[in-house]
Design a protein around this nucleic acid. Sequence first.
DNA 1: ATTTATAGTATCGACTCAATACAATTTAAA
DNA 2: TTTAAATTGTATTGAGTCGATACTATAAAT
Lengths: 190, 190
Amino acid sequence: MNKALHSNQANFISLLSRLSRLVNHEGHAAGLKPAQWDALRYLAQANRFSRSPGALTSYLGATKGTISQTLMSLEKKGLVEKTQDPNDKRSVGLDLTTVGKNLAREDALRPFADVLEVLSKEDQKDIEEALQKLLIAKLRSEGNRPFGICKSCRHFRKDAPSGDPHFCDLLKESLSVVGSEKICIEQEAA
Amino acid sequence: MNKALHSNQANFISLLSRLSRLVNHEGHAAGLKPAQWDALRYLAQANRFSRSPGALTSYLGATKGTISQTLMSLEKKGLVEKTQDPNDKRSVGLDLTTVGKNLAREDALRPFADVLEVLSKEDQKDIEEALQKLLIAKLRSEGNRPFGICKSCRHFRKDAPSGDPHFCDLLKESLSVVGSEKICIEQEAA
DNA sequence: ATTTATAGTATCGACTCAATACAATTTAAA
DNA sequence: TTTAAATTGTATTGAGTCGATACTATAAAT
């Protein structure tokens, strides 16, 4: 038997669900659906090791089937292209087309970011930190990896001796400066 | 032509969309869907003036058609009952059944509230305040009313001379103590 | 060589959601 | 008072979501 929620909890849940609803509602811009925006946004931010249906699946916490559907929609709209991985014939690589990249720049959630801009710098910082804390806490409670950016990974090696400036010690691949700012599925905090 | 998002904005959007996705994901408990939980939660918190399809529609920021569907589902599951308003034959009153009330007590988002409990009291307060600020700012930017509770409304009259302890000066109706804690569609900050 | 694991796709059913059209009242105006 | 306009809901449609299940192809492990 569950105890009743106390009023703080009830209030927190209300806030969270309403906010989430607004976010979801915003995600219907430009003829895309929220889930499609989520995928597009991820693909615009993920490094090449992480642009696969599988990585997207675990990032979004969805099932493979759903992601497969979403990707088919994006492909049909000409926003995403699939390529066969030559090393592993099961794997599929995903890339945004030029149109896809341009669209990703006009993120459906931009209006939300604009609302944030109106608040004081201090509020902005507080809100961002709060969201971060809550997200991390929730992800951790479910045993999910947070999907950080490459640069802050324990496999990241700065200033490689030759070629590109950086290096990933896990995947044994060199990394550009831009690449090291991207989301990586393998990322583990340093 | 839109300027590119700066990295702070991009980060904020990521946080928000991921959090929203987790919330949405959580809303699949007990055989209900997120939108159904949203409706159930509202109906458990709203006062009798605000338990109508129309009020629910504007609270959730959905369209009438969608809400109508959602309510039909909840009715079919035996969680909600509709009653005809005798004064206005167009209007429909909504009430949770006993089963509905019990289910509302086991809110699908409870696990999220539990995660919050693990954090420090200070973090909890910060997070709740941040969510509140963001929600209000967003609602205001769209010109929506925030749907506060009756007690903090400018139409609220405390300690009525007779009958129930309080009174709503707008609807000319008396209010119980419990009723004055509920969400009201007519609420305007005092 | 045969299991077992991994990466994706295909399909189903219940539901969401925006959009549109529609029916039944109220309410306001002419 | 009789239209006209606004309000409250329902019905339907089409694209998509999402969990579940089943399935295919390929890699890895035993």
